[in-house]
Write a protein that binds this DNA or RNA. Structure first.
Lengths: 244, 244
DNA sequence: AAGTGGTCTAGACCACTCA
DNA sequence: GAGTGGTCTAGACCACTTG
C-alpha cells in the first residue's frame, strides 16, 4: 500500500494513528475473550500480514500494551496476554487489612441513578448517562466496619448484580466476565461520619473515618468503577511498604 | 558507521543496548544540571548527530524517559525536562501531595526524651535509651496543614538538628550524611483532632485528620525514624496507584 | 534449526509550534 | 516558513526460546 493510498484510507477511516487503531483491535480481542489471559497472541510477523502494516507499527501497539501490563513479552517466546494480578487488591507493598475473622457483606441499595454527576464525571460518562449505585456495609464478626458507595457504568453493573451480596471485592468475579483492570488509583483521607453513616456503623456522628476514594480503569483506558469506602479506623489498616 | 563496526564497538564497550546507553547519558545530563528542569534538551536531529545513531534509537531513549515522567514532549515544540518533584517518597505509585504553593516548616519542640516507650519500641531501642522528639507544623501559604511528631535515635537526631526547621522531608539531607533507608512502612488511617492538635491547626476538636504512622528502616535493618503526622484532609492527598 | 521478540538503520510525510 | 516531534515503511542482524 503506497503512502497516498494509506493517507486517503486513513482520512476516510479515522484520524487515529494506525498503531492506536491496532492497539484497540488487540484490546477488543482480549475483551471479547478471543485471546484468554495466559494465552499467546499471534506473532508480530502474523500481525504484520493480517493488518498490512510495518513491524514498527505493530511493535508500538504491542509495546504500549506491555507498558499497561496487558501483554507480556519474552525474547524468543510468543507474546502472551497477562494473567491478572490475582492478589485481590494486593500489589506487593499495599495491603488492605480488615481486622476480624467472619467477614460478611450487606447490600443496602442497588439501583440506577440519573443524577450523580460527580460519579459520572469520574466514570467519564455522558451527562445523560445513567449509573448503577451499589451501597453496601462491610461486616466483621457481626459488627459493621465500613460503608461503601460503589458507582458502575450500566454494562458492568448488570454483571455485578449477581454476586454483590457475597463478595466485597468485585474484581475477581469481573475477571471471569473478561473485564480486567489495568490501573487502580486510590486516595486515602479522613472524614467525619455523617449522621447516616454513624447510624449504619454504630458510632456517633463526627467520628473520624478512614476514607478511601478509588477509581479503577480497564484495559481500554475506560473507568470500570468509582467508589468511596469509609472504614472505622480501628477495624482497618491501610498499610504501604515502600522498598528501595 | 557500518553494522559490523557498530557491533564490535558495542561488544567492546558494553552489552547494554544503544538506546539504554543514550538514556543513561540523558539522565546524567539532567542529574548534573546540564539541562535544568523546565529547560529544553537538544532536538532529536541534534542528538542523532551528536551520538551518531538513528532517529529510532534516540526516540526510544526519549520515549522511555517521557514514560518515566522525566521528559515532556509536545508536538512541534522542543522536548523539555520535567519540573516535577522527581521523587515523592522515592517510589513510583505512591504520592504524598500537599496542596499549596509556599511551603514552610515550624519547629515546635526538639528535645531528648526518656519516657516515650511506644516510640522506643518502634525504634527497637533499649528501655533505658533516650530518643529525640521533633514536633513540627507543616505550613502551606501561611496556614498550618499538618502536625508531626517525629522520633529519632540519638545519633540520627543530632544530624537532623541542623535542617529540621527548613526541610519537612528529612531523607534527602540524611542521605548526604550517608544515612539511607531501605524500607518505609506507612499505615494510613483517620483520627479525631485533640484539643491540642485543633488549636495548632486552627480547627475545632474532633475534626477528622488523615493520620499517617511511619517507620523507616535503614540499610542495617535498624529503624531510623518513627513518626506520626496528622494532616488536614483537604490539604493533603495520599494517592496510591496500583498496576499500570 | 526455525521462529520469536529486541534492537537498529535510513529515509519519508505529517501536524504542530514559534518567531 | 523553518524546525520540532509524531507516525510509518522496509529491511537488517541479533539473542533467545522451543521443538
Amino acid at each position: 500500500m503506497s503512502w497516498k493510498e494509506r493517507c486517503e484510507y486513513m482520512s476516510k477511516q479515522r484520524k487515529l494513528p494506525l498503531y492506536v487503531q491496532i492497539k484497540n483491535k488487540l484490546v477488543n480481542n482480549i475483551k471479547e475473550g478471543v485471546w484468554q489471559p495466559g494465552e499467546a497472541i499471534p506473532s508480530e510477523s502474523q500481525l504484520i500480514e493480517q493488518y498490512n502494516v510495518s513491524r514498527t507499527t505493530i511493535r508500538q501497539a504491542v509495546q504500549d500494551l506491555v507498558q499497561k501490563n496487558v501483554l507480556e513479552t519474552r525474547r524468543g517466546a510468543p507474546t502472551r496476554v497477562r494473567e491478572e494480578p490475582q492478589v485481590e487488591l494486593g500489589n506487593p507493598g499495599i495491603m488492605h487489612h480488615e481486622l476480624g475473622t467472619n467477614m460478611e457483606v450487606k447490600v443496602l441499595r442497588f439501583e440506577k441513578l440519573k443524577e450523580h454527576y460527580h460519579a459520572k464525571y469520574q466514570l467519564k460518562l455522558e451527562e445523560e448517562a445513567e449509573v448503577y449505585l451499589l451501597e453496601r456495609l462491610r461486616i466483621a464478626d457481626g459488627r459493621p466496619i465500613a460503608f461503601q458507595q460503589l458507582f458502575l457504568p450500566l454494562s458492568i453493573g448488570e454483571k455485578v448484580k449477581e454476586f454483590s451480596y457475597k463478595d466485597f471485592d468485585i474484581f475477581p468475579k469481573l475477571g471471569q466476565h473478561n473485564i480486567h483492570y489495568t490501573n487502580i488509583q486510590e486516595v486515602v483521607s479522613a472524614s467525619n461520619a455523617t449522621q447516616y453513616e454513624a447510624d449504619l456503623l454504630g458510632i456517633v456522628p463526627g467520628e473520624a473515618l478512614t476514607d478511601i476514594e478509588r477509581t479503577t480503569v480497564g484495559i481500554d483506558s475506560m473507568p470500570i468503577e468509582y467508589s468511596r469506602t469509609k472504614y472505622l479506623p480501628n477495624a482497618f489498616h491501610y498499610r504501604v511498604e515502600i522498598g528501595k
